[in-house]
Design a protein around this nucleic acid. Structure first.
Lengths: 162, 162
DNA sequence: GATGACTAAATGCATATGCATGTAATAGTC
DNA sequence: GACTATTACATGCATATGCATTTAGTCATC
């Protein structure tokens, strides 16, 4: 009788948890040391900056970032408090609003990308050939039902979720 | 001029973050729905149950679990509050202590493994052949500088970190 | 155009986390 | 054996998170 989660599957699970934690912590630490806010802010700013008029409904941001509703609400609150985004009235739907990235927000996003990309290179890029990175993507996608969304950042910026 | 973190590396980074979050959330949710405490409790109980006399110094547990010191301290506090572990005096080093798993702790760990292993199978095992799981392990280990520690759980129980 | 079901966003409250520091014991040094 | 540095663990306090609920607006149906 076969073991149910095979030893191989269990080992993969453990690695996935441990390695992600380790790499994420390392990257977050580098951003923090460089005096930047958490990665989640970057992700939100990136999503906003990519959006049509630099603005998005909170509910859309929520879906993009895979965050709970209240979490998105508070993230936006912080961005607005820091002048990185502004709330705009939503005429189509009075329940809602638009959140628009400010110039300061765009600048911060670009500056963060410098530190962020260096961290990705250090902790991922430098440890894997492009071919292996692609293999890893393929295997991970099988687990995640694809985090697809037609990824093709023109100038190249990453996202992260969480 | 080559892009620094290659698109492949960036894509791998994104997948790693997203897929891990998704899978971990799914597994944690299943444990919670089954009325069990968080995964971190399982990990701690497993480490304790595997240790020589079912006991470990907090500082050892901390290293095993890759958790910050204060986090370990509070985790132990909760386990003790729930009667899953007890604190024992450490005669060798009066600053320290030993934490020993109780019978209730061992039972909970075993019961949790039922739900936990099913979740691993559902979210990882069933989506990957053993060969692919092994490939994934190999690639992840390259990023994590191996989460080695001679993993070979006799009866098969997973760990997780975080 | 009133009613009930549903969606968008915010928030009160309990718990968890991170950081810095505190306390106590050990180890090394002169 | 006093003095300093270091290690083990706990904890006060500020901030963050999760959950459930609230408020307000939309939509479908009658």
């Amino acid at each position: 009788m076969k073991r149910k989660p095979s030893l191989e599957a269990t080992a993969a699970w453990i690695r996935l948890m441990r390695v992600q934690t380790k790499v994420l912590d390392a990257v977050e630490q580098e951003l923090k040391k460089a005096g930047f806010p958490p990665l989640a802010w970057y992700d939100a700013l990136l999503e906003l900056s990519r959006a049509p008029a630099g603005e998005l409904r909170p509910v859309e941001l929520e879906r993009q970032m895979l965050l709970p509703q209240y979490s998105t609400s508070r993230l936006i609150e912080r961005l607005v408090d820091e002048g990185l985004a502004v709330r705009r009235e939503c005429k189509i739907d009075k329940r809602g609003q638009f959140v628009e990235i400010t110039e300061a927000g765009r600048e911060l996003q670009k500056k963060m990308w410098g530190a962020y990309s260096a961290a990705i290179e250090k902790h991922v890029g430098s440890k894997l050939s492009d071919a292996d990175a692609t293999k890893l993507c393929g295997l991970l996608d099988r687990l995640g039902c694809s985090c697809s969304e037609a990824q093709s950042p023109a100038i190249g910026e990453g996202a992260s979720a969480r």
